[in-house]
Amino acid sequence: MAKSNTHIIDRTKRVISIRGLHKSFGTNHVLRGIDLDIFQGENVVVLGRSGTGKSVLIKIIAGLLKPDSGSVNVLGNDVERISYRELEKLRLRIGFSFQSSALYDSMTVRENLEFPLLRNSKHLSTQQVRQAVEKALDAVGLSQTINQWPGELSGGQRKRIGIARTLIMQPAIMLYDEPTAGLDPITSMEINDLINEVQERFNTSSIIITHDLTCAKSTGDRVAVLLDGRFVKQGSFEEVFTSGDERIKSFYDYNFIT
């Protein structure tokens, strides 16, 4: 199902701007000169095979990895040049949904959601924290899991709670790392709908890392295909997959045949 465009993308306002990004791990040159702009309110899907550096890209944006060269500007901050304190402040405006959900095993769902709030919004009363947690859980449709442990949740529920935990800080940017990996088609569709809902309700800009073309088609305003450490094609889903590039075509054929 293709994405319905009911939200507004402000093409005059760049929230993420990446230029000439390079990153290597030992002799493995993963990113080889990445240029990318993300605009206000835009969902950009980064497509590519496993091991092409998709996750590395968003980890660099969140300041979890340092690039070898190039610049990464997020919400007007040069991630490489700002201090650790400034980076912490910036991270409050970035929501990161991990591939493994990364819920804290030693905490209940409530405590998982409270954690970023209690540490970063100390002015909030207990009542306000409780309300924020309930609101975030309601946004992902999992209010009933509030007192459960992460180990008691299904894969799809864990993904949703992971997204709720990022939404609680009301981020301007969402970074989704393989949001539908390991999920059945129905749950994947629910996650795709949730990504679109988050974009519309909270007016976020997002980067969605995936190799799931259904996810790419239903969530992306723009698709960027990453091959051999470079973006080989950017545009709408239809533009990208009707381009005639054999490498992209084979990716499409393989994804839909399997």
Binding site: K59, A62, L64, E88, K89, R91, L92, I94, F96, F98, Q99, S100, A102, L103, Y104, D105, S106, F115, P116, R119, N120, R165, T166, M169
Partner: peptide, 21 residues
């Protein structure tokens, strides 16, 4: 084991991106 498990399941990264050292 606890920190190792947190490391490999990206919980430490999750803590870092939620502005906690």
């Amino acid at each position: 084991a606890e920190l190792g498990s947190m490391k490999v399941t990206e919980q430490i990264d999750a803590m870092e991106v939620s502005a906690t050292n």
